[in-house]
């Protein structure tokens, strides 16, 4: 390095046009839409035409995917391990069910109401997870999840208790598309909601806000030292994630015309953690890949051993961890690597 270069190094007036240009190019590339994203959505639409008899399981996948992607905002971005994400899913489902039963059977309004209610719960409970260790957060999220299940159980006059909530049916979506017996409309509806949700979350992921979340996860002390207000950010992202989880719950209630107390069960929170782990955290589409794999495996298992599939799910989890998530996620290495913009410049 010459003396001239050195002098220019820290002086404020001079600017490096080449570096600026390169920085802008790199940043743009970071949030570019990848080919595999397009492939996924095309495949999802193609499934509608190619697999007409599989609408129910496809719907299940779409709902689980939305649920898992919402958890990714909390886990993969903000780094909070939650054992109670089903609380928001369940609350959303009940909200949508009750709305359809008592007020309006318009599905889209149901989604908004579910998002609102679940988001409110997320906002209120987010303050409880701000401090403390991973352990405290596990306790808190698990506790809140169980508490919501207990609330639903105790308020049987409202929720139907252990029998669940039934006896409602939905109007055509926006007055145009009627739910059919084969679940075709249901699938397209869920897919559309998943798509919109995904696009919104994608914007969040690549925004300065999304980056600041990852900073909090990566190194909270340093994040503070570049003035990231960690608590505010966590409150916001937890609320948003709760809203999307609530929407996923609402989709389940609307497409099945039934809300069982199972929507709040612990295993749902554990399942969604697993889904996300299979698919990989921190790049959103992990939730989609995970949902596809998980649903197929679970479906296959419950055919083989209807009563004890839980055992095999558990075994898969144990093996998964022992093999190592990192190693396992390498199969998808091409995808997340590209998404997070780590590729080299040519």
């Amino acid at each position: 390095m010459t003396m001239v270069q050195q002098e220019a190094l820290v002086s404020r007036q001079s600017s490096d046009a080449a570096a600026e240009g390169r920085a802008v190019r790199l940043m743009k590339r970071r949030s570019r839409i990848r080919i595999y994203e397009i492939v996924i959505w095309l495949a999802a639409v193609a499934a509608y035409f190619l697999l007409p008899s599989k609408m129910l399981i496809l719907t299940e996948i779409a709902i689980l995917a939305l649920f898992a992607v919402s958890l990714d905002l909390v886990l993969g971005f903000a780094g909070i391990v939650s054992l109670g994400h089903a609380a928001f899913f369940g609350v959303g489902a009940y909200a949508a069910g009750l709305l359809a039963l008592h007020y309006t059977a318009e599905p889209v309004i149901g989604l908004f109401v579910a998002a609102l209610v679940a988001g409110l719960l997320g906002f209120l409970t987010s303050f409880l997870i701000l401090r403390g260790s991973d352990l405290t957060r596990l306790m808190t999220t698990l506790g809140i999840g169980l508490m919501m299940a207990e609330v639903a159980n105790q308020m049987a006059w409202l929720t139907g208790g252990a029998d669940g909530l039934s006896g409602f049916s939905l109007n055509p979506i926006l007055g145009l598309f009627e739910f059919d017996l084969y679940g075709k409309t249901g699938y397209l509806y869920c897919l559309a909601v998943l798509f919109v949700g995904m696009m919104i979350m994608r914007r969040i992921a690549f925004s300065p806000f999304g980056l600041s979340l990852k900073a909090i996860k990566s190194n909270p002390m340093r994040a503070g030292m570049i003035s990231v207000p960690a608590r505010k950010r966590v409150v916001v992202v937890y609320t948003i994630a709760a809203m999307f989880a609530g929407i996923a719950g609402a989709l389940l209630a609307q497409t099945t015309s039934f809300v069982s107390p199972d929507v709040l069960a612990f295993h749902r929170s554990a399942d969604v953690l697993m889904v996300l782990t299979i698919g990989g955290t921190g790049y959103l589409y992990g939730g989609v890949f995970g949902a596809v794999l998980f649903t197929l495996v679970k479906d296959a298992l419950s055919v083989v051993t209807p009563q004890y599939w839980m055992f095999w799910i558990g075994l898969i989890l144990v093996v998964l961890v022992l093999i190592g998530r990192e190693r396992l996620n390498r199969w998808a290495a091409y995808l997340p690597e590209r998404l997070s913009g780590k590729e080299r410049e040519q």
Partner: peptide, 20 residues
């Protein structure tokens, strides 16, 4: 911690189904 959580939940599931 995420790994530990997943791993031990896996064990719980196995134990629950096994006991059943």
């Amino acid at each position: 911690h995420l790994d530990q959580v997943l791993f031990s939940i896996g064990l719980v599931f196995m134990a629950v189904a096994g006991a059943d």
